[in-house]
């Protein structure tokens, strides 16, 4: 009788072998970048097969590393090809793109604030990206950076509360969760504003 873990492990190894064969055969750099994302999914599958709370605690840093690595590699690719200052225009003028973003982004941001922490920051940041992409990018880097800085201060203050007044732990957890939310949301919304303009 083959168990659940062994079955998943066999399937994961087959997928990893296929992914690396095609990564080996590929010569174009952008194709390789997309296949890197496939390899990331395989790595997350291996972690998810552990199937306890440990897996959940390990997947979240994996996702952080995945998105950071992907953004860095994309920027390196753009610089290497010399197309970083290329202006892409967005002539997709369907009617939905005018009406959907405020309501949908509002629901996503509200849900993210209720959820808080890194997951809430990701969901709320996705809402802000959607709004900025569909409405055109307004340059408000100073405001976003200021909010991010205050979030950092709040996070540090929460840890001081943990160390000095341990009986106020619930208050400190709330402050830390809100600060992480604001930081992740600010970082993600920077992605949304950098879609079109040439000087990022």
């Amino acid at each position: 009788m083959i168990g659940m873990y062994q079955t998943g492990l066999i399937a994961a190894f087959i997928c990893i072998i296929i992914a690396f064969i095609s990564l080996y055969q590929e010569t174009d750099d952008l194709h390789r970048l997309i296949l890197t994302d496939l390899a990331e999914i395989m790595a997350l599958l291996l972690i998810a097969l552990v199937a306890t709370d440990l897996a959940e605690a390990l997947i979240l840093p994996g996702l952080v590393v995945m998105i950071a690595e992907l953004m860095a590699l994309a920027e390196i690719y753009l610089v290497k090809e010399g197309i970083q200052r290329k202006k892409i225009s967005c002539p997709l003028d369907i009617e939905v793109i005018q009406t959907a973003p405020p309501i949908l982004a509002g629901i996503l941001v509200l849900y993210g604030i209720i959820l808080s922490g890194f997951s809430g920051g990701a969901v709320a940041g996705l809402g802000i990206i959607f709004y900025c992409v569909c409405k055109g990018s307004d340059e408000q880097f100073a405001l976003i950076e200021t909010a991010s800085g205050y979030a950092w201060v709040a996070w540090i203050a929460a840890f001081f509360i943990f160390l000095i007044l341990p009986e106020q732990w619930f208050f400190a957890v709330m402050i830390a969760g809100g600060a992480i939310l604001v930081k992740v949301m600010a970082k993600f919304s920077l992605i949304g504003t950098m879609s079109g303009d040439p000087n990022v």
Binding site: L92, D93, I94, E95, V96, I97, A100
Partner: peptide, 13 residues
């Protein structure tokens, strides 16, 4: 429904 609307509009344009 939003997805179908977006696909149909983009296909028409």
């Amino acid at each position: 429904t939003l997805e179908a609307n977006a696909i149909a509009s983009a296909y028409a344009r």
